[in-house]
Amino acid sequence: MLKILMVCGAGLGSSFACQMSVETVLKDLGVEAKLDHCDISSASGMNADIIISGKNFETQFKHYNIDATKIFLNKLVDKNEIKEKLIPVLKEKNVL
């Protein structure tokens, strides 16, 4: 099953809020995935297929060797932005 990880600085508030928005988008698309959230330093050990994080963390990810498709959002809970950026990745991974 596809694993999607939402990442923020502390792994609590904004990543969890993002996870709830991603759940809604995936449900609307009819896609099943295992979702989780964490802080940026824990992300490397989570073996995710897709990582979704804020645009403000994009440069920090360069310090970690994470083999996952990364999606960076301007607004973590904007379902339209999530859908717009997630659909091409889901198609690339033959999930949609």
Rank of each mutant, 00 (worst) to 15 (best):
S42T: 03
D39L: 07
V31S: 08
A68H: 03
D67L: 05
S53G: 05
F57M: 15
K34D: 11
N47Y: 11
S14P: 04
G11F: 06
K93C: 12
L2F: 02
M20D: 01
D39R: 12
E84A: 14
L96M: 02
M46T: 02
E92M: 14
M1G: 08
G11E: 04
V7T: 14
Y64S: 03
V95F: 11
I52G: 01
L96I: 14
K70D: 07
Q19G: 13
C38R: 11
K3H: 12
K55I: 15
F16V: 14
C18S: 14
G30C: 02
I40M: 10
V22H: 06
S14R: 13
C8N: 08
C8L: 11
I51A: 00
M6F: 10
M1R: 11
S44N: 07
K85S: 10
F72C: 12
M6S: 15
L76P: 03
V77F: 05
D39I: 02
F72H: 00
Y64E: 01
N65S: 04
L5D: 11
K91N: 13
I50R: 02
V22N: 05
K83I: 00
I4R: 00
E23V: 01
K27Y: 04
E81A: 02
S41T: 10
D36L: 06
T24F: 03
L73C: 09
E58H: 02
G9Q: 08
I50T: 12
V77A: 10
I52A: 01
G45W: 01
Q19N: 15
V22R: 02
S44A: 14
K62Q: 13
L73G: 07
S14T: 15
I66C: 07
N74P: 04
V7R: 06
S53Y: 00
A68C: 06
L35I: 10
M1F: 07
P88I: 08
K93E: 09
V77G: 04
D67Q: 09
I66Y: 07
A48L: 09
M6D: 14
G9Y: 08
I52N: 06
G30L: 07
A68F: 01
L76G: 10
V89R: 09
P88W: 06
G45N: 13
Q60C: 05
I50E: 00
C18V: 01
L2M: 14
F61C: 09
L76K: 04
I71N: 05
